[in-house]
Nucleic acid binder design. Structure first.
Length: 635
DNA sequence: GTAGGGTTAG
């Protein structure tokens, strides 16, 4: 029980929940005991009783003041108490009373936070006055609910109503941009309204430009900044990291530190993602050492786990996973996919069972990892079982990625016709990734006719893809369709398709050493080439024959071999062998898919040099050990 | 009373 104070003192002590306006207090008909109770319950944060008493007060025609109502509603929001919130709403409107816009806005916000947009809209429509807060609340609600058209519609109506938007409005509406064009229009509007220097608006703009893949525009917004804060820095760092521009992400992180901001978990998560993208295991490890001293953060832990997986370091990934104090569906999915991608499919499936046993429900992405593992382990029956039952068991509708795994499953098994049939019959449209998977299957199972068909499908979707042109031209050549092969080469020339220079890199003593075919800028290049030639000679003695089928067939014999001899991954592997102590794995990352010749080459090297060599190409991991690759020569 | 940044996908 509260001590009996004079009313004035109580009013002071419990201000936010004060029901006792002078008017109600001195109303001779008001049951003061009820008011006392209500006040006390509010004070004690006893929501159920406060609401119950409020009902009794309502019967006596007694209302609380706006401040009390607003605090009660805010409390309902924080507790997720939908039912109670609606009771307060009902009480606010009792006895024909019409609240001011301030209180209506809070009610509106309540429905928005509870994701009850229809009810928010009813209230919004009946509000006699709407100010910028009312409009922004609606925009924010529809944006969060991913109803972007509606959110933008509210902005238009708001303009029509003559209400001037503020920074809150723009940072809410930016997420609703449904195209780059809309984004640019909104950007103009922001500048017109003089809100482009607002840090909230700025960070939203950077974020949205980056989500639309326009990180350079995002950087312009960032670069105009005179004074910014940590979130703006984090937005640009994340933008670069998410757009596969790890170098710039790391550079901006350094600049941020120079500007006097010490990064937080969000900054470090992006740094970790940049390390993941660039396969910078050592730098990632440094960040790991740095963060284990700070309080744990689930998102950062997940990013760390992914970094170890994508750098091909499963030992550290597994121990990081074991040591995580808390694991969510993303942690499990990351580890499952990580195992499967690095060639440990059976372990991935075991982990999937542990995940279910731990009581977590797999999501869309988990199932992609699971089906990926099934297809790579050749477990056709399990694959089909999960594919057909995941909707029923986990509520996951099969999507394009799942279908891609199933096409891969069939392709790997050599059931190429079934794979094509599956692709044609599935509900979603096949994408480039799916066709590429099938192209890999055609290559392995030497089905040239189908390869030609598939390559054409890829070129329809990606007319600039050099690798596919080469493959198509070579497929024609192997089937003696010389004219077609010539035609493909002409098309390539006509379109000006240029080869993205293949490059491979390796991290050594906190430095990245990058190699490109024909590039002699590495200080040790002469030595590396000399050693590489020696190595190739030794390999040829044990039976290595350069495989020229991955080079365009318009070069003559020796030239073809030469263009293979110095492929960037061969240079990088050689450099790794020369620079790293015996027994240490050589980890290479490259920007293009590994070619068949380099694959054979590295397999043999792993045997005669007795080394674990890991090469990560843009889609696959290759762990070479004892002359065998984890991909089983299928990629 | 209304806004901003970080993690998993073939």
């Amino acid at each position: 029980m509260l001590p009996k104070f004079p009313m004035k003192s109580i009013l002071k002590a419990i201000r936010p929940y004060n029901v006792c306006t002078t008017q109600t207090l001195y109303n001779p008909s008001s049951p003061s005991a009820l008011i006392d109770d209500f006040t006390r319950f509010c004070y004690q944060r006893d929501l159920p009783r406060a609401i119950k008493t409020m009902g009794s007060l309502q019967k006596h025609g007694i209302r609380a003041d706006s401040i009390t109502y607003s605090e009660l509603i805010k409390y309902c929001i924080s507790r997720g108490a939908i039912k109670e919130g609606k009771l307060v709403h009902n009480h606010v409107y009792s006895n024909g009373y019409e609240p001011k816009v301030f209180l209506n806005n809070i009610l509106l916000n309540m429905y928005v936070k509870f994701e009850l947009l229809d009810e928010a809209l009813v209230l919004f429509d009946q509000m006699p006055d709407r100010n910028v807060v009312s409009w922004t609340t609606m925009i924010s609600g529809y944006s969060n609910g991913k109803l972007y058209v509606e959110a933008l519609g509210f902005l238009v109506l708001m303009f029509r109503d003559g209400v001037v938007p503020n920074g809150f409005t723009f940072s809410s509406v930016l997420r609703a941009c449904d195209s780059l064009g809309t984004l640019r229009q909104i950007h103009c509007s922001i500048v017109k309204n003089g809100l482009d220097s607002d840090v909230f608006v700025r960070s939203s703009m950077i974020d949205i430009y980056s989500k639309w893949g326009e990180i350079q525009s995002g950087f312009c917004v960032f670069d105009e900044m005179v004074t910014g804060d940590l979130v703006v820095w984090n937005s640009i760092i994340a933008g670069f990291a998410q757009n596969g521009n790890g170098d710039e992400a790391l550079e901006n992180f350094k600049d941020m530190k120079r500007a006097g901001f010490s990064g937080n978990h969000a900054s470090l998560t992006s740094v970790m993602r940049a390390c993941t993208g660039l396969a910078l295991l050592e730098l990632g490890r440094q960040v790991h050492v740095y963060v284990v001293k700070s309080p744990r953060d689930l998102i950062l832990d997940n990013a760390l786990l992914d970094m170890y997986c994508k750098c091909g370091n499963l030992e550290d990934a597994k121990s990081a996973f074991e040591l995580m104090p808390e694991k969510d569906v993303i942690s499990w999915s990351t580890m499952i996919s990580g195992l499967a991608q690095n060639g440990c499919s059976l372990e991935a499936l075991e982990l999937f069972h542990s995940m279910k046993a731990s009581g977590l429900t797999p999501n869309y992405i988990t199932m992609v990892g699971v089906l990926f593992a099934c297809s790579h382990a050749g477990l056709a029956d399990d694959g089909w079982f999960y594919f057909r039952s995941m909707k029923q068991f986990f509520g996951v509708d099969p999507g394009r990625e799942h279908c891609g795994c199933m096409a891969d499953l069939l392709g790997r098994a050599g059931k190429l016709d079934e794979a094509i049939k599956f692709i044609h019959e599935m509900e979603c449209e096949p994408d480039v990734v799916m066709w590429r998977t099938l192209l890999g299957a055609c290559r392995v199972h030497k089905n040239m006719d189908l390869a030609i068909y598939v390559a054409k499908q890829i070129l329809k979707l990606e007319p600039e893809d050099e690798g596919t042109y080469i493959l198509l031209s070579n497929a024609y050549a192997t089937t003696q369709r010389w004219e077609d092969a010539e035609e493909v080469r002409k098309t390539m020339k006509g379109k000006g398709v240029k080869k993205e220079p293949g490059s491979s890199w390796i991290e050594l003593n906190k430095q990245v050493h990058a190699f490109v075919l024909g590039d002699k800028s590495h200080p040790q290049i002469l030595n590396i080439v000399k050693e590489l030639n020696n190595l190739i000679r030794r390999l040829m003695e044990v039976g290595y024959v350069p495989d020229t089928s991955f080079v365009l067939h318009d070069l003559e014999g020796e030239q073809m071999e030469d263009s293979l001899r110095y492929h960037s991954e061969k240079l990088a592997v050689m450099f790794g062998l020369m620079s790293l102590p015996n027994g240490k794995p050589v980890r290479i990352m490259k920007n293009l898919r590994i070619c068949g010749d380099c694959h054979t080459f590295v397999k043999l090297v792993s045997k005669i040099e007795d080394r674990h060599i890991v090469i990560r190409d843009p889609v696959r991991y290759h762990h070479f050990k004892d002359g065998v690759c984890s991909c089983g020569d299928y990629w």
